[in-house]
Amino acid sequence: MRIGVLTGGGDCPGLNAVIRAVVRTAVGKYGHAVVGFEDGWRGLLQDRKVVLLNDDRNDRLLAKGGTVLGTARTNPTKLQAGLETIKQTLDDNGIDVLIPIGGEGTLTAASWLSDEGVNVVGVPKTIDNDIDCTDVTFGHDTAVSVATDAIDRLHTTAESHQRVMLVEVMGRHAGWIALASGLASGAHLILVPEQPFDVDEVCRTVKRRFQRGDKHFICVVAEGAEPDPRSMKLADGGIDEFGHKRFTGVAHQLAIEIERRIGKEVRTTVLGHIQRGGTPTPFDRVLATRFGTCAVEAAQAGDFGKMVALHGTKIELVPLADATRRLKTVPEQRYQEASVFFG
């Protein structure tokens, strides 16, 4: 068997651990060949360089962030229009099974290919943890750990200067990073995309905390959080080439409003891409390794059109169509649980 591998979308801690596990299992256990396509779907669309992946026993790949195959974002419309080109590239390279590793966009494309008769086994990755049908995706634990460490550090400087600190974390449509890092670090307020916020209520929460004698206020804000339009309007950034809304810095704009409305000094920290760069946590290394191994086992068994998923402590297979039907967002109940610690 000849297995193709690609990593699509944004980079994510743990991608190299998946690649390592796919190669070790496919080559070392079954004697299959593994071919890596560089730069994600773009590599398949343009028939770019392919790499024969050997049974690499360099365990340092486990600790290496990013992806050794490179990655790229591709416009979904162009991707769907190029399915025949992708199929031809796979045929030209003698690929029997494709293992795409990626988030919503990558797995949706994998589902399209599966519908076209291509043998596909998907591996979910995203720091946002917004892929449905799996308890968690690798990369999320690392992002939460990085954000939590940063917020822990901001507590001390905020308290020293009696300031309000807004910390913007990633989370375009889902607030899982904000929720987890905010709870873990003892933030005083968490704003997520799933729950529109009222700026006046935010200001009241800040004022109450200082009125009772506390010396600082930390608010974690997901990049996709939005205010109730009756209380504040964000600047319009338009749509990018991939069909995504361009964010204009919700934390910065909220900081201006808080200072204007209550006269309290506010500082903003945007963690940005450091959340998904660098060394993956042990949890993510292990989960990514298990995902990669399970993907090859599914390919060996001929169980295609599926995605590997974590259910409890087990790695199981779910239909790609089910996993890509909707995003997994923060339920209102989970947000209400966290709200006990607000203020």
Rank of each mutant, 00 (worst) to 15 (best):
D91C: 11
N93I: 09
G94C: 12
D96F: 06
V97A: 12
V97I: 15
V97D: 08
V97P: 08
I99Y: 05
I99S: 11
P100I: 08
P100C: 07
P100T: 07
I101H: 04
G102T: 01
E104G: 10
E104F: 10
E104M: 11
G105P: 01
G105L: 07
G105K: 07
G105I: 09
T106M: 08
T106D: 06
L107W: 04
L107C: 01
L107M: 13
L107Y: 01
T108F: 05
T108I: 06
T108H: 12
A109P: 11
A109S: 13
A110P: 03
S111K: 11
W112F: 12
W112H: 14
W112D: 14
W112K: 09
W112C: 12
L113F: 10
S114G: 15
S114M: 00
D115V: 10
E116G: 01
E116I: 04
E116M: 14
G117W: 11
V118M: 11
V118Y: 07
N119Y: 06
N119S: 14
N119W: 02
V120G: 08
V120E: 07
V121D: 12
G122I: 02
G122M: 08
V123Y: 05
V123S: 05
V123A: 07
P124D: 06
K125D: 10
D128Y: 03
D128N: 13
N129R: 13
N129Q: 13
N129E: 13
N129D: 14
D130A: 06
D130C: 09
I131F: 11
I131P: 12
D132C: 14
D132W: 15
C133R: 15
C133V: 14
C133A: 14
C133G: 02
C133Y: 12
T134C: 04
D135T: 09
D135F: 06
T137Q: 09
F138C: 01
F138L: 05
F138E: 04
G139W: 03
G139Y: 01
H140N: 14
D141N: 15
T142M: 08
T142C: 05
T142L: 09
A143P: 03
A143W: 02
V144R: 03
S145K: 10
S145R: 12
S145E: 12
V146E: 06
T148C: 02
D149Q: 13
A150N: 01
A150E: 06
D152N: 15
D152M: 03
R153D: 01
R153W: 03
R153H: 10
R153S: 03
R153I: 04
L154A: 01
L154Y: 08
H155D: 04
H155Q: 09
T156C: 00
T156N: 07
T156F: 00
T157S: 14
A158F: 03
E159M: 00
S160F: 01
S160W: 01
S160R: 00
S160G: 02
H161R: 03
